[in-house]
């Protein structure tokens, strides 16, 4: 829905892989400030890998990644830390700390980056839990939650620092359709009211049509981006018949 915003993430000429084994090559794209940007592709095509490079967990083989003005590839420790204070990440399997309650999980991030009084941190933690609909579960341990609750708690933790950019790895995988739809609404609402930029890895086509402003599609065989643009455009007039069919089949089964 936003079109003219400045890019907040710029990926140029990126090649990534593990131990000389290339997973993706010649990847280039931009994410604009305030938009919801989705990364699609089949299982094992390198979506999580790309995401981990975008947040600086891995060093790419070549290329540069500019996130909110910081080149994450060459950033010094301090620049990197400053950037980490402005982004939030929810990993594919939650990655909550098992020995702490959910509130403590969120407070841990706040302690690291702010020096607010403890009461303030706990109120903030409860606010974030409320946003994802877990206000009752703040004092529970991650092991006492269902899979879907863990996903939502991970999103709450990703938003702990009022980030400008939130990265989500398959947020709705494993959720029932109703909860998944609520999560989509939540993402849309957050991006609208808080102007958060979302970068989301996902499989779920219905949710792409709800949330995504723009998408890129990765392919395991060709090891690069095979389609980029607004999901509706890709469905209706992509050059690649396979891409068109991919979007159509899924959405025709879903819509009407």
């Amino acid at each position: 829905m936003t079109a003219s915003n400045a890019p907040i993430i710029q990926v140029r000429d990126l090649t990534v892989g593990y131990d000389h084994h290339v997973i993706l090559q010649n990847v280039a794209f931009e994410v604009r400030a305030g938009e919801v940007f989705c990364i699609l592709g089949g299982s094992g095509c390198g979506k999580s890998t790309l995401l981990k490079h975008m947040i600086g967990l891995h060093q790419p083989m070549t290329g540069s990644i500019l996130v909110d003005g910081t080149d994450i590839v060459t950033a010094t420790g301090e620049e990197r830390r400053a950037l980490l204070g402005r982004i939030g990440v929810a990993y594919q399997n939650g990655a909550l700390f098992g020995s702490m309650t959910l509130i403590e999980n969120i407070c841990l991030v706040l302690e690291e980056f702010t020096s607010l009084p403890r009461g303030a941190m706990e109120t903030i933690a409860r606010m974030k839990m409320k946003v994802v609909g877990l206000q009752e579960a703040g004092h529970r341990m991650p092991s006492e939650l269902s899979g879907g609750m863990r996903k939502r708690a991970a999103i709450a933790r990703a938003m702990a620092l009022d980030p400008k950019i939130v990265f989500l790895d398959e947020p709705s995988a494993g959720l029932d359709p109703i909860t998944a739809a609520q999560l989509d609404d939540l993402i849309v609402e957050l991006s609208r009211t808080l102007k958060i930029t979302f970068v989301i890895v996902t499989h779920e086509l219905p949710s792409i049509f709800t949330v995504a402003d723009r998408v890129i599609m990765l392919d395991k065989e060709r090891k690069t981006i095979i389609a980029a643009g607004r999901p509706q455009d890709l469905r209706d007039r992509s050059d690649d018949p396979w891409v068109r069919q991919f979007f159509n089949r899924q959405s025709s089964g879903e819509a009407v």
Binding site: M127, K130, T193
Partner: peptide, 17 residues
């Protein structure tokens, strides 16, 4: 817009452990 945001984040009463 700030009021709307507050509504979104309103945690209600703290539930004591």
């Amino acid at each position: 817009d700030l009021g709307e945001m507050m509504k979104l984040f309103d945690p209600g009463r703290p539930s004591a452990p």
